[in-house]
């Protein structure tokens, strides 16, 4: 498709992209084009400004009595030091929860790899590779577990994967995300929100975790039916999309022992 044709397509979907209501596949295509076209980036920037101005027209409202005091008290309690301690405790709980979830899942090879990765802070984690290898050469007698996997790509930069998403749609379901946004302009330090997306563009917040200099690993148990979701995205505090992933269904096949 020529550049002009891509620009024409961008003109059609740009308003929905700027308003944050474009479905996952269309958004990925549009973002990939923006990476190559400065004029379309400016076009979408202007449309985003329109969206901001539109939200800015919403009327102010008087909050409930005591709101100011309650919020100020919460903020005062959340000093940077206590925040770090809380995050560490939460991470410890999450890791223990994931370990227990992994044991329940009975996905022997994948669970062992995932649990080891969790215990090691996800370093060298390659469950996606395990899934690929197993599905490419199925052993003769197996147990089968459905999973969702996807490569994460940087918003606006496309191309090479910058991380992985691996989800197990069981009860409870669990999801693991590993990301390394290391290209210039993509590095981000702060809390990111992980949103799961349905094919119709609707999304649900899975949770939040910290990125440091673009790097972060995270996992959580969920009560959601993950089979309903076809994508995931990471957003910064102001809602800017940092990375997206299309989830595809796969099977982890494990030899009977």
């Amino acid at each position: 498709m020529s550049g002009d044709a891509n620009c024409e397509r961008l003109r059609e979907v740009g308003p929905e992209l700027a308003l944050g209501v474009l479905s996952g596949r269309e958004r990925a295509e549009a973002v990939a084009h923006l990476d190559r076209c400065a004029e379309c980036r400016e076009y979408v920037r202007q449309l985003t400004l329109v969206g901001d101005r539109l939200v800015g027209l919403l009327p102010d409202r008087e909050p409930p009595p005591g709101f100011e005091t309650r919020v100020a008290r919460v903020l005062a309690r959340q000093t940077p030091a206590s925040e770090g301690q809380r995050s560490a405790r939460a991470l410890g709980r999450t890791r223990r929860g994931l370990w227990q979830g992994a044991r329940r899942a009975r996905v022997r090879l994948a669970a062992a790899a995932a649990a080891l990765a969790v215990a090691a802070g996800f370093a060298g984690w390659a469950v996606g590779t395990v899934v690929e290898q197993v599905t490419a050469a199925p052993p003769p007698a197996v147990e089968s577990e459905p999973v969702l996997v996807g490569d994460m790509t940087a918003a606006g930069h496309g191309g090479e994967p910058v991380g992985e998403v691996y989800a197990h749609p069981g009860t409870p379901a669990w999801i693991f995300v590993s990301v390394a946004l290391t290209r210039p302009g993509t590095r981000y330090t702060g809390t990111v929100t992980c949103l799961l997306e349905r094919a119709d563009g609707a999304s649900v917040r899975a949770g939040a975790f910290a990125l440091r200099d673009g790097h972060g690993n995270w996992g959580i148990a969920l009560s959601e039916d993950l089979n309903r979701y076809s994508g995931a995205r990471l957003t910064s505090s102001d809602g800017t999309v940092l990375a997206t992933a299309q989830l595809r269904k796969a099977q982890v096949l494990t030899p009977e022992t």
Partner: peptide, 22 residues
């Protein structure tokens, strides 16, 4: 981490933030 400034911050923006949320 100034609690007094945090309170002023909330007071200044709470109507806007709550209006959007509502």
């Amino acid at each position: 981490g100034d609690p007094e400034l945090a309170a002023i911050f909330v007071r200044r923006f709470q109507h806007r933030v709550f209006g959007v949320a509502m």
